[in-house]
């Protein structure tokens, strides 16, 4: 009985190794590694009162209720040995959230916004949306659908940059 058991266990683990190998191979063929590593992190921004002054702190976004603010940070790292240029980061404003005015930031970047699902972009304050009456009105931050950052210059090998924006949960 004991021998039998061991045999089954060995067979099982062998099967696992085979499966993993097959998986890795498929991945490598279908999708070669790119030059950048892109990471999106989120944190909840909490407004707190500290000695009578309003300030804020960041906590894990484990508990988020309507009306609360979440900050997204997108890190991009050049993991290749060649400089990367013409870098554009596009982030759709998550569903159920509203972009918080003036919250888009990022070193050496220029940010533009879209109100039409990412087809056209423009600087904040220049965008217009069509009202129910057919007339054009200045877009509100709640009309924004996408943000796009353009990184000015090249990202040197083995360096990392980040952009960030905040939203309020509806």
């Amino acid at each position: 009985m004991k021998i039998n058991n061991t045999f089954i266990a060995t067979a099982k683990s062998l099967l696992g190794v085979v499966a993993t190998l097959v998986f890795l191979t498929t991945q490598a063929v279908a999708a070669p590694q790119g030059h950048l590593k892109v990471t999106s992190k989120m944190q909840k921004m909490e407004i707190i009162n500290k000695g009578g002054k309003q300030t804020y702190r960041f906590i894990p976004a484990a508990k988020v209720l309507p009306g609360e603010i979440v900050q997204y940070n997108t890190f991009y790292e050049n993991i290749s040995n060649k400089p990367a240029g013409n870098i554009n980061i596009v982030n759709a404003i998550p569903k159920h959230t509203v972009y918080l005015p003036n919250s888009a930031q990022g070193k050496n970047t220029q940010s533009v916004f879209s109100v039409d699902g990412g087809r056209h972009y423009g600087k904040a304050g220049t965008l217009k949306v069509r009202g129910r009456d057919g007339k054009l009105y200045p877009a509100k931050p709640s009309d924004y659908t996408h943000i796009r950052w353009h990184y000015q210059g090249n990202l040197a090998p083995r360096t990392k940059q980040a952009v960030a924006f905040r939203v309020r949960l509806r």
């Binding site: 989120m42 309507p66 009306g67 979440v70 997204y72 596009v90 982030n91 569903k95 159920h96 509806r170």
Partner: peptide, 18 residues
């Protein structure tokens, strides 16, 4: 407010040239 249990997803996409 957004209904309890709703998943809020965020994905950034980066384009570049080498």
């Amino acid at each position: 407010g957004t209904a309890a249990g709703t998943a809020v997803d965020n994905t950034a996409s980066i384009s570049y040239s080498v």
